[in-house]
């Protein structure tokens, strides 16, 4: 079995009396793409934010590249990156300027060439001198992804990278993600509400509900475990809090 890149143990996050994440434990092996699924409020984004050091866990431990995130945050962040539908790059700057700034923050070698590479990968090389704020939603999402790929991250966190994209652009993003995994061997954590994304991209899936892990396995195992026809049916059933007795929550 390949080495573990990310290991999360007994993670808990409480905001006052509300427990957003409850005893979550999982790991991602090198080169694996793990899907983190669940309805809105399931705790996916909170888990990702804890991995980025934006939120401090109430309990538990996050270990990335064999190091404790709490004590080696900067070293770890240098080797990882993220793309979220909830963030944007400054709209007043040109596309190339934004990537130049983040390339310098991540100390990317041979930066000019790398910027051209990631822009070409996402098929937006022609937008390099365009004002970021004038991009369409699809172009803007791909720019965010370019920023996330700049430093050839060993661990990439993708929070709903295809949200609000048309099927054509979503397909391009999925293909780019798979190509990055093949060429750079990047490990990824991928959240999405698009089950087609998940089935196409992810090797393994974790289903979360109300801050807890309900089940984890390959997409086919998940479907079989919940005795449904598709991952989408599982998602709907879990989101509606329907008959969950067949699922065995993992504490």
């Amino acid at each position: 079995m390949s080495e573990s890149v990310l290991r999360v143990a007994d993670l808990v996050k409480r905001f006052g009396d509300f427990a957003a994440v409850r005893n979550v434990s999982f790991e991602i092996r090198k080169g694996e793409i793990l899907g983190l699924l669940g309805a809105n409020g399931a705790g996916k984004t909170t888990v990702i934010n804890m991995m980025l050091g934006l939120i401090t866990p109430s309990e538990g431990r996050i270990e990335v590249f064999g190091q404790d995130l709490a004590s080696h945050r900067i070293e770890i962040l240098r080797r990882m990156n993220f793309c979220s539908t909830y963030t944007q790059l400054p709209g007043n700057l040109l596309v190339g300027q934004n990537l130049n700034v983040f390339g310098k923050l991540y100390r990317v070698p041979d930066l000019d060439r790398r910027i051209d590479e990631v822009l070409d990968l996402l098929e937006i090389g022609h937008l390099k001198k365009r004002v970021s704020g004038h991009l369409s939603a699809g172009e803007s999402t791909r720019l965010n992804l370019c920023k996330a790929l700049l430093n050839r991250p060993e661990l990439l966190l993708l929070d709903e990278p295809t949200a609000s994209l048309d099927p054509d652009i979503a397909d391009k993003v999925r293909k780019a993600v798979k190509r990055v995994r093949e060429e750079d061997g990047a490990t990824m954590l991928y959240t999405s509400h698009n089950m087609r994304d998940v089935e196409e991209v992810c090797d393994r899936v974790i289903f979360m509900h109300k801050g807890k892990i309900l089940h984890q396995g390959t997409p086919a195992e998940i479907v079989s475990h919940f005795q449904e026809k598709s991952l989408e049916d599982v998602f709907i059933r879990v989101a509606r809090g329907g008959e969950l007795e067949t699922a065995k929550p993992i504490d």
Partner: peptide
């Protein structure tokens, strides 16, 4: 505030910036 207004705050605070 510039980062707040441009929704860039998380990009900066999740970057390797002390």
């Amino acid at each position: 505030l510039e980062d707040v207004w441009s929704r860039n705050l998380l990009n900066i605070f999740a970057a390797p910036v002390t």
